[in-house]
């Protein structure tokens, strides 16, 4: 457990390098949410803003590791490949999760301060969770690409692979629609939205587990 803690701490130190930018951005977002709240409910948009802007910065820790060739050094210490990969996934998840929670708290506070209450908080929370799941999908597609090709070389693949995945999924959906025209008539979208939290939870577990296993397999074979 200490090793994982140390590895997380190592990645966290990377954020210190751009703490000025982070503080500036937080204040800018607070200002934007405040101004926006004067006209409309900004809880959802504010939360998503924090998630998108701060929750995907964890990828930069890979660049720092790559530049310093840190993995070679870390694996020479009493640290296993499994611990290195696991800590990266924890870091990616915690970064997204904490960014979302902070974004929600900040947006909630400002919205209540300006407007007195949040309109339809249940719907807002579900939308936040759906966006969180989408970012999880992107991050979980990126990490194995980075392990396979490195940060620079994997940049293109990190875009192509999730896009390809969505494209294939869309094509399958369309194919089903052509083959079984009545299939979607019975789908209750409202019910689907009601259970979206549960679906998102399951999807997040699947994305992180599958992505972790792929990355670990790649990293295990990799010559450092």
């Amino acid at each position: 457990m200490n090793i994982i803690k140390g590895l997380l701490l190592k990645d966290l130190y990377v954020f210190r390098n751009f703490k000025g930018n982070i503080i500036f951005s937080v204040f800018m977002f607070i200002f934007l949410i405040f101004i926006g709240s004067l006209r409309m409910d900004m809880f959802t948009i504010g939360s998503i803003l924090f998630l998108i802007f701060f929750g995907m910065n964890s990828i930069s820790s890979f660049s720092y590791d790559e530049n310093a060739d840190s993995d070679k050094y870390l694996l020479s210490l009493p640290i296993t490949r499994k611990e290195v990969v696991l800590s990266k996934y924890l870091f990616v998840f915690l970064d997204s999760f904490i960014s979302l929670i902070v974004g929600m708290l900040v947006s909630l506070f400002i919205t209540i301060l300006v407007r007195g209450s949040v309109d339809n908080i249940g719907t807002s929370l579900r939308i936040c969770l759906i966006v969180f799941t989408s970012t999880s999908f992107l991050m979980c597609s990126n990490v194995p690409c980075i392990y396979k090709w490195g940060v620079e070389k994997g940049r293109m693949q990190s875009v192509i692979i999730p896009a390809l995945f969505v494209f294939v999924l869309g094509m399958l959906g369309s194919l089903l629609l052509v083959l079984f025209p009545g299939l979607y008539l019975n789908v209750n979208l409202e019910y689907l939205f009601q259970i979206s939290s549960f679906i998102c939870l399951i999807l997040n577990i699947i994305f992180y587990s599958v992505s972790y296993l792929i990355s670990y397999k790649i990293y295990l074979k990799k010559e450092i």
Binding site: N2, I3, K5, G6, L9, K10, Y13, V14, R16, N17, Y64, D65, N67, A68, D69, S70, D71, K72, Y73, S76, L77, P78, I79
Partner: peptide, 26 residues
């Protein structure tokens, strides 16, 4: 104990940071 000429921690870390990490690693 290891010294590798071309590999170490990220250059943004300082001596105190390294101490904290190594305490967790060893």
């Amino acid at each position: 104990g290891i010294v590798l000429s071309d590999s170490f921690f990220s250059p943004i870390l300082n001596v105190n940071d390294i101490n904290k990490l190594m305490k967790d690693f060893y």
